[in-house]
């Protein structure tokens, strides 16, 4: 923030520095304001002792962190998070691979398909989640009526209340809203693969399956990696779907670390801003570690340089 003063001296290098600062200034201010300041406040809150009203009563040291780690539901929440992120990620990538292939082909109605795929992305997540609540409802849900009238089930399925179905239902909706972004990243990747590579492969007698596994997938790797990394972060941080679809269920049985953090602050008996902030710090560290590990394993540099 201090670097915004322009050099009034004669030296060219100082003038150059001033100009540099001027160009970088807005971006730096944005980073400080949007990233650094909240991060500092988050850490500050996590080491403070708060009353249930939100009044800061003093420093808490590492107490909030300890209380989060000792929380009896923490292991459930972590397991839920792993299942949620992994399932949504894998499902959306696999389905998007097919969708992207389809969208890249020339056929009648392609434009319609492309629109249909992108529409869910344009809708607010809360609204999408609410719509799915209606679709999946036990008493009036359309899905249950279809299943009943088709004779697949005898009694309605409680998709959102039955413990066996809650997480799969959330994963289904999560995948649905993750598809547009993923499919479009992969479509862009497919478009970047030159046709002559396929032509050469055909000349050498490669089967379509061989062409797909030996050419498409390897050349799609940069796009797949971008989609994976961004989706890990999006899905991990996804709040509206898990919160909305799960709002009837007491306790933490189907919460992920993000909704856990929110409930700690406002809904659960803990009602502690400090604990919630500590959980927030853990969330940041967790996603950072996961993403770094993924980049390490998949050798990000090699892939993106290719």
């Amino acid at each position: 923030m201090t670097a915004t003063a322009t050099g009034s001296g004669a030296g060219t290098s100082r003038a150059g520095l001033g100009v540099t600062a001027l160009w970088l200034g807005p971006a730096l201010a944005l980073i400080v304001g949007v990233v650094l300041y909240p991060a500092v406040e988050l850490v500050r809150a996590s080491t403070s002792d708060y009353s249930i009203t939100g009044l800061r009563k003093g420093a808490a040291g590492a107490d909030n962190y300890r209380r989060v780690l000792e929380h009896p539901d923490l292991s459930t929440v972590l397991l839920n998070t792993v299942v949620w992120v992994a399932a949504v990620l894998v499902l959306s990538i696999v389905i998007s691979l097919g969708l992207a292939q389809l969208m890249s082909k020339e056929f009648f109605g392609r434009r319609l398909l492309r629109w249909a795929v992108i529409v869910p992305w344009a809708a607010s997540l809360v609204i999408t989640a609410r719509l799915f609540m209606l679709l999946l409802d036990y008493n009036y849900g359309i899905l249950n009526q279809v299943l009943l009238s088709a004779g697949i089930v005898d009694t309605p399925v409680d998709f959102l209340g039955d413990d066996r179905f809650t997480m799969p239902s959330m994963i289904g909706v999560g995948t649905f809203v993750t598809l547009p972004f993923t499919a479009y990243v992969l479509l862009a990747g497919l478009k970047g693969i030159p046709d002559d590579v396929y032509e050469a492969a055909r000349m050498d007698g490669a089967s379509p399956w061989q062409a797909y596994t030996r050419i498409t997938l390897p050349l799609l790797r940069p796009a797949l990696m971008v989609a994976t990394v961004l989706n890990i972060i999006y899905v991990f941080n996804s709040f509206p779907i898990v919160y909305t679809l799960n709002d009837r269920n007491p306790g933490f049985a189907h919460d992920t670390t993000i909704t856990f953090m929110y409930k700690l602050a406002f809904k659960s008996a803990e009602k502690s801003v400090g604990m919630s902030a500590a959980a927030g710090v853990f969330n940041v560290l967790l996603i950072l570690v996961v993403v770094l590990a993924y980049l390490r394993i998949s050798n990000w540099k090699e892939a993106t340089d290719a």
């Binding site: 988050l42 500050r44 809150a45 972060i233 902030a277």
Partner: peptide, 28 residues
């Protein structure tokens, strides 16, 4: 390059998280 990408993603994750929880300053 790896470090830069990691830092950028870290910052991104942080921003998303920071938006999630209402935090603020204030004393008794």
């Amino acid at each position: 390059r790896f470090a830069a990408a990691a830092a950028a993603i870290g910052g991104f994750a942080l921003t998303l998280t920071a938006c999630g929880g209402g935090t603020g300053a204030g004393t008794a």
